[in-house]
Design a protein around this nucleic acid. Structure first.
Lengths: 148, 148
DNA sequence: ACTAACTGATACTAAATTGGTATCAGAAAT
DNA sequence: ATTTCTGATACCAATTTAGTATCAGTTAGT
């Protein structure tokens, strides 16, 4: 059971990388090399992020991409929604008419509760928070060289 | 983003159905008809549940399947694990050597936290609980015919 | 004006996964 | 012996996932 697919995974990584260099534009090529993400794949991911307003872009030589918002305003949940759609149970009943199957309904009720939890949690994780965590980790490892 | 696949979904439904008729064996055919689950598909699902000790079976005419345990001891999480593997992040890093990518690590840390939550929640939902919920719902609807 | 470095859009593909079917062998009840 | 069942396993089509390729248009620098 995989929670995140490669699209989401790469997207978040790219967003973190962009967030670490605020103000500057980075080309998809550079980003792909730095992050080890296949170039063409990353291009498509970035385009999707651009379409959804998380990233801004500038065409032409010297162009590239940058975060379009404050990193604290970019939630991992937003990214998941873009690439994996909103969290939902296997073939949501409510699209069809009423729950044909009663047992199903009960199960779904539980699942939706859990889904809400997951959504709320992923909404709490912002790119800004991840960057902060990252910096904290790197400081710690730059400071005292702990056991390794 | 789909949480449960058909295997898990049908499996839980089947387990609930079995749990509702304690003691009696039911054939895969009957179960498939009652629950509207494709016969051959259900057969394979049941075999998997049997292999994993959630269901017991008896071969031959008059045979069939039944729960192998107390419904309260069958967790939806167990079922998910059987059919979808344990919840995990897109390609767990830790199988490879150390996190090659720092940003990744930070993201993964968050995701694993959320995963643990999900796992714990799905562990709390047992077939027994679902059956109890189901009965409660059906009583309510048998009693006062509420607005509809 | 040319060219190199970019993004926009979109078509294509291989491999894996998902959901489902079919078949054959063997066990038990009648 | 025949019917009703499970055990095991092979097969299949559709979808999804991950990744590639191509061409058109934009901008900066010369």
């Amino acid at each position: 059971m995989k929670v995140l697919n490669k699209h989401t995974d790469y997207a978040v990584r790219a967003l973190i990388a962009l967030g670490m260099k605020p103000g500057s534009r980075i080309s998809a090529k550079t980003l792909s090399e730095e992050q080890g993400i296949p170039y063409q794949f990353l291009r498509r991911i970035l385009q999707e992020l651009i379409r959804n307003g998380l990233v801004s872009s500038k065409e032409g030589a010297g162009g590239g991409v940058a975060l379009a918002r404050d990193p604290d305003e970019i939630r991992v949940r937003d990214v998941i929604e873009i690439f994996q759609g909103s969290v939902q149970v296997s073939e949501c009943m409510f699209r069809k008419q009423l729950c044909s199957n009663r047992a199903n309904c009960v199960l779904r009720h539980e699942i939706m509760r859990i889904e809400r939890m997951v959504n709320d949690e992923f909404a709490k994780v912002t790119v800004g928070k991840l960057i902060a965590d990252l910096k904290r980790v790197e400081e710690a490892r730059a400071g005292v060289q702990v056991q390794e």
